[in-house]
Design a protein around this nucleic acid. Structure first.
Lengths: 116, 116
DNA sequence: CAGCATCCACGAAGATACTG
DNA sequence: CAGTATCTTCGTGGATGCTG
């Protein structure tokens, strides 16, 4: 998808920051093991189809684990894996940067738009 | 774009990891001030239209600066801003994670696909 | 409940050609 | 050189309905 030619982190960006993966990972990291609907509700605006798609991909990539309980009604639980958890420092770094610099982005936008 | 309800870093993810911003920022961080075509060539697969779009947005967000030299032929130079440079630790963290864990992702995929 | 199947809509991105 | 203009393609995502 992205050009790796000039950017060594392109693969990991594709992996971790493609759409919905961050909220999913963050939620699972905060609340531990969750059922499908719980995850769906906590994220709020995602549709079940898309949530399923992303979870499958993340399961394949080893970022989350899926546990199926053959009951009636069926119960499926998702959990962040060790590999997924190892991204925590990166996320923390982003949160820090956010706290410190996101306001500057807003300022820059106002300046650019001339709506000082 | 992304749901912020469950994920505090969603805004910064949108800002920094939307398409092409990472390669652009990385390239400008590596090579300093660059002209439009130089940037285009280093990234390799981006089209001028898209490159222009992304650069405009990043300029608006305060991540890059644009300098126009009214000459013939015209010369425009792009440079990473202080704000953009402040992302370096985050990028470095990603590169580190990449070196350590990207192979595990490949393993997980092989396992999932059953192509052990 | 946890999904899959299907259809549809939209915007981002690519290809191409053209200007000051 | 540094873009802009236009057209087309494509993928993501939304909506809906249906199963074990």
């Amino acid at each position: 998808m992205e050009s790796e030619l000039a950017c060594p982190i392109a693969p990991v960006v594709d992996l971790v920051f493609s759409r919905w993966t961050t909220p999913i990972l963050w939620t699972l990291n905060e609340h531990g093991r969750l059922r499908f609907v719980e995850l769906e509700r906590r994220i709020g605006t995602i549709t079940p189809k898309v949530l399923t798609q992303r979870l499958r991909q993340m399961e394949r990539d080893g970022l989350v684990t899926r546990t199926y309980h053959p009951e009636v009604p069926p119960r499926v639980e998702y959990e962040i894996s060790e590999l997924g958890r190892s991204l925590a420092p990166v996320f923390h770094g982003l949160a820090e940067w956010s706290k410190r610099n996101l306001a500057k982005v807003d300022e820059a936008r106002s300046r650019y738009d001339g709506t000082n």
